[in-house]
Write a protein that binds this DNA or RNA. Structure first.
Lengths: 171, 171
DNA sequence: TTAGCTGCAAATAGTTTGCAGTTTT
DNA sequence: AAAACTGCAAACTATTTGCAGCTAA
């Protein structure tokens, strides 16, 4: 549950609140105070890959009477516009949101549940090869998810465990 | 909803029912008729990346009185043993199961919801680089998910759409 | 025998939805 | 003024859980 960012440049590729709002406007969506607050909350927590609950909590600070439904609706709208992506992470109860829609990998720690962004040349190679080999037209290139243990947790909990096939998904 | 396999060798890397049962036994789990039936169903539908509902339906054919809870329980056990992985796919209501736990990519079609397996050298490079760059100890190397449109659907629905960043997640 | 498994049914909880009233354009 | 958006509360539904009886070892 701690939200220390483990790796990677802070929000370097993430869209800003302004960009999100611009996308909404460009799509002919209305500019409401609630949406503004939600976009600000997204921007602020971008590096955490926030869940709906976290965004809801953050928005409430400045907008105490907002309803969850509005948060869900707006997030769905942003998702459909393609300016935000959903991260469905195994064994996590909530959906996470990522403002970075450029090709990258997300690495998830099984212990502290932190999520890091990783930008690598290899991602593009992988996608190109996958497209060539499968005949698929790959549309979404962000949010490739890898699971493991972050450096902090390795240190904290003792290391040693082999990173092998057959590694169980849970503790 | 059609389940034609689009790409890749049929179940080449998937574990067989026998292997699943062996894993259960090795872990000191009891050998029940229900678990046997579930493993058989998994093996049979491995190439489909079946959901719980599909496995439940398949098992019922030979075992009409089985309960869903048992299917859920067994799947969870297999998951914890690391012989099966869960695929959490964006916008899919159900969890999919993959009997292939060797490093590979899953490519998901947004239209027909088919899931293909792709084994590529690049996967290992990606994982190695991700581990090196992030300091994470990567434990799960299977089920890297990519989203796009499969060849059949491209043909069927007309092509043309650009595979760009900013591509919406839904229709 | 006995620990573990199954099946039933009820509980849980994240997300979605209907609708009436409000707000943006 | 019209269409869209919000907030509330109810609805949905995939998954989990409690528990009594069954069963593999």
């Amino acid at each position: 549950m701690n939200k220390t960012i483990v790796t990677g440049p802070p929000a370097a590729h993430s869209r800003s609140a302004v960009q999100l709002l611009a996308a909404l406007e460009a799509a002919g969506k209305r500019n409401t105070a609630q949406r503004y607050a939600i976009c600000r909350a997204l921007e602020k927590h971008a590096a955490d890959h926030p869940t709906v609950a976290e965004i809801y909590a953050a928005v409430r600070e400045s907008f105490p009477m907002i309803s969850q439904a509005t948060v869900y609706n707006t997030l769905q709208t942003l998702k459909r516009l393609g300016v935000v992506i959903e991260l469905d992470i195994a064994n996590h109860d909530h959906i996470h949101y990522d403002l970075d829609v450029t090709p990258h990998v997300n690495v998830v720690c099984r212990h502290c549940e932190n999520i890091a962004d990783l930008h690598m040349r290899t991602v593009t190679s992988l996608i190109d090869e996958a497209a060539a080999r499968s005949g698929f037209q790959i549309q979404r290139t962000a949010g490739l998810i890898l699971y493991g243990v972050c450096p902090d947790c390795r240190r904290r909990r003792g290391d040693g465990r082999a990173a092998q096939e057959g590694e169980p998904q849970d503790a």
